[in-house]
Nucleic acid binder design. Structure first.
Lengths: 167, 167
DNA sequence: TAGAGTTTGTTGTAGATGCAATCATAAGAG
DNA sequence: CTCTTATGATTGCATCTACAACAAACTCTA
């Protein structure tokens, strides 16, 4: 076991601030969406991901990858969204273990109505606080971190409903 | 209502990546600490904050501010830590509404043992993935965001005392 | 010193999440 | 073809968290 490489003062400050953002930002995202649209940020993101998919439809596993969620978590969230009439599940004909989730018209409406407020909130909380240069920096920093956090690059991978997931 | 300023492609990419980090990083932090030290990241952070405070003691409200937690959340976490013998609560003599939380010797030991693994994990997940320049950029970006998320500047304004147990 | 209003911390309750176990279906080995 | 293993999705259970209601103690005013 080698000795621990402790953090330099600069590293410590950077990490302290980043950890604070990690603690505060999710709540700030949820609270606006819950207040204005009765959606958590995760629910919104799932609906928005569906809205951009072909046929507004994705396999549950594919949606889980896009949203960085575990399958159990997504399954329960989908149950709620389905009860609210925003999505519907249907067994996949090609692989009867799998299911396709489809955004309903009501779900589409929901996303369309929620989007402006959410985008404004993302601007207020994040993008408008940063210079264009910093937005580029954030993008590269986050990409670098995802290399470790998400080795499969699921976030960037393609979003198709048919066919097996890319290995 | 003015028209929504939608995100440019660069902004969208940056935000998509940042949101993915927001979703994945907390779990990655928790999982190492839970596996190696039976602590959540939040519990570790609370203990570490206490370890750096004078007398290893803080008012509960002050600790909540340092850790960016709500009071109910912190109260319940402290109950757990107290049951585990890692901290103890004592009514403050000057203001009998308030309570001081103190890190016990066992709590100190716990932090000291957990710190190396946690720091290595922070390096593996974050700091070692970034150039020194990017660490500075991350620091400034996070600071800018905290200006909106944490207007009181609780993270910075508070007592940041040097101590043996680092972040 | 009485009382309104505040601050500090805890608790009731409901909803969210992760892990492990489970069920159903598919793919592969012999 | 049968049996074993792997995959897709859901559910049981324990834990965590937020919001709101609450209790206790402080402050300020008259």
């Amino acid at each position: 076991m080698t000795d621990t490489r402790w953090l330099s003062e600069e590293e410590q400050t950077a990490w302290l601030r980043a950890a604070a953002v990690l603690e505060l930002l999710p709540g700030a995202l949820d609270s606006q969406l819950l207040r204005d649209s009765e959606l958590t940020h995760f629910e919104y993101f799932a609906l928005a991901s569906l809205s951009e998919a072909p046929e507004r439809t994705l396999r549950i596993t594919a949606l889980a990858a896009l949203t960085n969620a575990t399958l159990p978590r997504l399954s329960r969230v989908l149950t709620g969204l389905e009860k609210a009439g925003l999505v519907k599940r249907a067994t996949c004909s090609e692989d009867r273990r799998a299911k396709n989730v489809t955004l309903t018209d009501a779900g589409w409406e929901k996303v369309v109505r929620a989007a402006p407020g959410h985008v404004e909130n993302v601007r207020r909380l994040v993008l408008d606080r940063l210079s264009p240069e910093q937005v580029r920096q954030l993008s590269e920093i986050a990409e670098a971190l995802l290399g470790q956090l998400d080795p499969e690059g699921r976030v960037f991978g393609s979003t198709h409903v048919d066919g097996p997931a890319p290995t």
